[in-house]
Computed example of a mutant assay.
Amino acid sequence: MPLLTSLRFRAGLVALGVVASFALLPQSTYASQATSAESRNKQIVTEAFDRWESGGTGFFDELLAPDVVWTIKGSGPSAGTFQGRDVFVDQAVRPFVSRLSTPIRPVDKRVWADGDHVIVNWDGEGMARDGVPYRNSYAWILRMRDGNAVEVIAFLDLTPYDDVLRRVPAPTTNGEHP
């Protein structure tokens, strides 16, 4: 009888091992897919920043989904949430860049990915039309889907940003600067 019990015990252990292996297989497959998605998202965002740093001008069109929700955190007049890429560009990007003589370019960046989120901590520099340099540090948290950011939470020092908007007059409607 002890031999029969020992065989049943061994068979039970083998069966348990087989079941455990199958239970772990989907997790390891999922982990591999998640790591692949993280790497792909990090690469997409890093390459978009690299093109912007090198003089590219299509950063927001390249990276943002048309229905992106962009939130600028803070309490200044520029803080708020923008529904859609066009709304964000029209209400937050264009009014600011129209007051610059040289565009903001990333000069330093660090990029991390976690699941479908990519975090970018970057420093940017540009020149306002009145000759005063603009420098700021940013932290953007992008939630990615299908190669585009569908949600962005942006942290920056709003004081220098709002100062450019306040200090430098907007161009007139015919595109000339006052």
Rank of each mutant, 00 (worst) to 15 (best):
A154S: 12
S98E: 15
W112R: 09
R110L: 14
R135S: 13
K109N: 05
E62A: 13
Y161H: 11
P133S: 06
V93E: 03
R110I: 12
D114C: 08
D114S: 15
S98P: 00
A79V: 02
P95H: 14
P106T: 12
W140M: 07
Y161N: 03
D61V: 03
P66H: 02
K109V: 09
I153M: 12
L63A: 01
V107H: 06
D114V: 08
E125K: 14
V132D: 12
G74R: 02
E125D: 13
P133C: 03
M127Y: 05
G131Y: 07
L142G: 02
R85S: 01
D162C: 06
L158D: 13
P106H: 05
N121G: 12
A139C: 15
S98L: 12
I119K: 02
D116S: 13
P160A: 10
P133M: 05
V150W: 00
G84L: 03
V118E: 08
W70R: 00
G126S: 06
F96P: 02
A65Q: 03
D86K: 12
V132H: 10
D61G: 06
R85P: 01
V89E: 01
D86E: 15
D61C: 00
W122R: 07
V89M: 10
S75N: 08
I72H: 07
F88H: 07
S75G: 11
P95S: 13
N121A: 15
W112C: 00
T102Y: 09
S75L: 06
S101G: 10
Q91V: 06
P95K: 11
